[in-house]
Design a protein around this nucleic acid. Structure first.
Length: 497
RNA sequence: GGCGCGAUAGCAAAGCGGUUAUGCACCGGAUUGCAAAUCCGUGAAGGGCGGUUCGACUCCGCCUCGCGCCUCCA
C-alpha cells in the first residue's frame, strides 16, 4: 500500500487514485529562459522517480510536466539578448531536455507549453469572472479576488489575516486587495506583438498561475490525483492554482500535493537571486550524471539536500561500490528491442500490481514476462517495495541496494546480481555496463584505453618475472593519472578514481 | 512579525517505543608479492531541559539553534 505525504493534510496517507489503477499527475516544470540548475534537477529526478514507482506499482500513469514559455523574465531576457521569445525558449527547452535526458529522466506523457493553451486560459478566466471571482482592475489587468475564495490559504497554512499582516505584500496597482493576483496582464505599448494575445479584456498575456490550472484541467481533467513541484511553489503558486481551478470548476482540484525540498549550498537555498546556483551542465562536466541522480535519490525527496563537491564525491564512491558488485557477474539480458521493452514494461506493471493487490489470482497471469526478471517476493524486493511505498523512501530503498551488493559480493550469486540491477532499475540506476561506469570518469586528460592496456600488460610481464619494483612503478604511474588497478583471479582490471 | 520544517555517530542519511540501518571515513583481521577491490569483525549516535512509560533517538511540552515560505523562484 502506497502512502504519500500530502502537503494539504500535512500527513502521510494511503494513496487512493480517483480512477482505480490509474494515476493522473501534474508537476510544475521549468520557466525556460536559462539553463536548469541543480534545484531543477531535483524536481526532474524526484518526480521521475515517483512516476517510475507508480508505474512499477501497476498504475496506468499519465504524467504532465509543463513548460512556462511566456513570463516577465522570459520577455526581459529575450530583450536583453535581442532575440525572439520563441528562439530563446526553444533554445532552453532543448537544453532542458539534454539535461533531463542525461540524468535519466523519462519524458513525461505530456509536456505542454503555456503559449499553446491561451484559449483554455481565457475560457477559465471567463468562468472565474462569471463566478464572481475575477474582476477587471483600473489598470486593465484581470485579477483574482482572493477574499472571495473561502479556502484560500489551506495549502500553505496561511490565513488572509496573517498574509495581510506581513509587510512584504506590496499595496500597489489596481488590486482590490493586495493579495489578489493577476490572471490576465494587459499589453503594454513597449511590448512586442509576440507577447500579445487577443482576449475579451483586450490584448495582453496570461498571468503565471493560470497556465497550470488551465493545462492541468485540459489534459488531466478538472479533478486529478497528484500535483507536485518544488516547496517554494506551495505559496503562492499552488495556492493560486487551487483558487483558480476550484473557483472555476466548482469541484475539488487535486487530491495529493507533493513538494520536494530544496537543494542547498552551505545550508542556504540554491536560487538564482542568491546567485549560489550550479547549473546541471556545469556539474556534469565534473561528475557523472548517474552520480548526480544517485546523489539526489539518496536523500528523501522532502528533505533539504546540501550540495558540495564533497557530497558528490561521497555519492560517487557509493555508486562505485554498487557497480563494482556487478562487475564480474552476468546479469540477465538487456531488453534491447522495442518488443522486449514493451514486454518488460507490461510485465513490470502486472507483476507489481499483482503484488500490490496481495494474494489474488492476477499474479499467475500477469507475472510471466517479468517473473524471471523481478521477483517481488524476494526479501530484498519486499523491503525495497515497503520503503518506496512509504512516501517514496528512496534512502531506505538505496540501503537495500547496498545490502544486496553485499550479498552479491559474498555469494557471487547471479540471481542476487540480477535482482540488484532490477531493483536499481526501478530508480533509474545501475543500468549501464559496470565497466563503462567504472572506467568512465570525467575523462580529463590522462591515458587512453590502449595505453592503459599496454601498461597493464607490461606490469603483468614484470610480475611474472618477479620484478615487483617495476610492477609497482607502473601501478603508481597509472594511479597518478587517476587509474586504479585491481588484481583478481579473473585478471587485472582498472577503473578511474 | 505570522506560518511551517528540521536538529541522528567524523561526514552524509533512514527506520524504529525495547533487538546491526545504509554509504564514506576510521580501527583490527582475512585475502594479496605489496596494493586495490572484496569479505569478516570492532568502535562511533540521536541539540538542551522536563514529562508520559517498566523502558524513548523514537510520543508530548518547553527552550536553543538552523532552514524555509509570507515578493519571482524547483
Amino acid at each position: 500500500m502506497l502512502k504519500i505525504y500530502n502537503t494539504l493534510s500535512r500527513d502521510k496517507r494511503e494513496f487512493i487514485p480517483i480512477t482505480p489503477d490509474a494515476v493522473r499527475m501534474y508537476v510544475c516544470g521549468m520557466t525556460v529562459y536559462d539553463y536548469c540548475h541543480l534545484g531543477h534537477a531535483r524536481v526532474l529526478v524526484v518526480f521521475d522517480m515517483a512516476y517510475r514507482w507508480l508505474k512499477a506499482s501497476g498504475f496506468d500513469v499519465t504524467y504532465v510536466r509543463n513548460i512556462t514559455d511566456i513570463d516577465d523574465k522570459i520577455i526581459r531576457r529575450a530583450a536583453e539578448n535581442k532575440e525572439s521569445i520563441h528562439a530563446l525558449t526553444q533554445r532552453f527547452i532543448a537544453a532542458m531536455h539534454e539535461d533531463a535526458d542525461a540524468l535519466g529522466v523519462q519524458r513525461p506523457d505530456h509536456e505542454p507549453c503555456a503559449t499553446q493553451y491561451v484559449p483554455q486560459m481565457l475560457e477559465m478566466i471567463e468562468k472565474l469572472e462569471e463566478n464572481g471571482l475575477a474582476y477587471r482592475a483600473a489598470d486593465g489587468d484581470v485579477n483574482y479576488a482572493v477574499r472571495k475564495f473561502p479556502g484560500y490559504g489551506n495549502l500553505s497554512g496561511k490565513s488572509l489575516e496573517d498574509l495581510r499582516a506581513g509587510e512584504r505584500v506590496d499595496v500597489t496597482d489596481g488590486k482590490n486587495d493586495p493579495l489578489d493576483f493577476v490572471l490576465w496582464k494587459h499589453a503594454r505599448d513597449s511590448e512586442s506583438d509576440e507577447v500579445k494575445w487577443d482576449s475579451p479584456w483586450g490584448k495582453g498575456r496570461p498571468g503565471w498561475h493560470i497556465e497550470c490550472s488551465a493545462m492541468g484541467s485540459e489534459i488531466l481533467g478538472k479533478h486529478f490525483d497528484i500535483h507536485g513541484g518544488g516547496a517554494d511553489l506551495q505559496f503562492p503558486h499552488h495556492e493560486n492554482e487551487i483558487a483558480q481551478s476550484e473557483g472555476a470548476h466548482k469541484c475539488r482540484f487535486v487530491n495529493y500535493w507533493m513538494h520536494n525540498g530544496f537543494v542547498r549550498v552551505d545550508e542556504e537555498k540554491m536560487s538564482k537571486s542568491l546567485g549560489n546556483f550550479f547549473t546541471i551542465r556545469e556539474v556534469l562536466k565534473k561528475y557523472d550524471a548517474e552520480v548526480v541522480r544517485f546523489f539526489i535519490l539518496r536523500a528523501h525527496y522532502r528533505s533539504p539536500l546540501n550540495y558540495s563537491d564533497m557530497h558528490l564525491d561521497d555519492a560517487k564512491g557509493a555508486l562505485t561500490r554498487l557497480y563494482t558488485a556487478l562487475k564480474f557477474l552476468p546479469v540477465r539480458p538487456e531488453p534491447s528491442t522495442t518488443l522486449r521493452t514493451k514486454g518488460l514494461v507490461e510485465g513490470e506493471r502486472g507483476d507489481a500490481s499483482a503484488h500490490a493487490t496481495s494474494t489474488n489470482s492476477r499474479q499467475a497471469s500477469t507475472g510471466s514476462a517479468r517473473t524471471d526478471l523481478m521477483d517481488w517476493n524476494e526479501p530484498h524486493a519486499r523491503r525495497f517495495k515497503a520503503a518506496m511505498d512509504d512516501d517514496f523512501n528512496t534512502p531506505e530503498a538505496v540501503a537495500v541496494l547496498f545490502d544486496l551488493a553485499n550479498e552479491v559480493n559474498r555469494t557471487q550469486s547471479a540471481e542476487a546480481a540480477s535482482q540488484l540491477k532490477a531493483l536499481a532499475g526501478v530508480l533509474g540506476l545501475l543500468q549501464r555496463d559496470p565497466q563503462a561506469f567504472l572506467q568512465g570518469g570525467a575523462g580529463e586528460g590522462g591515458f587512453d584505453d590502449t595505453v592503459i592496456s599496454a601498461q597493464i600488460e607490461a606490469r603483468i610481464t614484470a610480475k611474472k618475472s618477479k620484478n615487483f619494483a617495476e610492477a609497482d612503478r607502473i601501478r603508481k604511474e597509472l594511479l597518478e593519472t587517476g587509474i586504479v588497478l585491481e588484481d583478481s583471479a579473473m585478471g587485472t582490471t582498472w577503473r578511474r578514481v
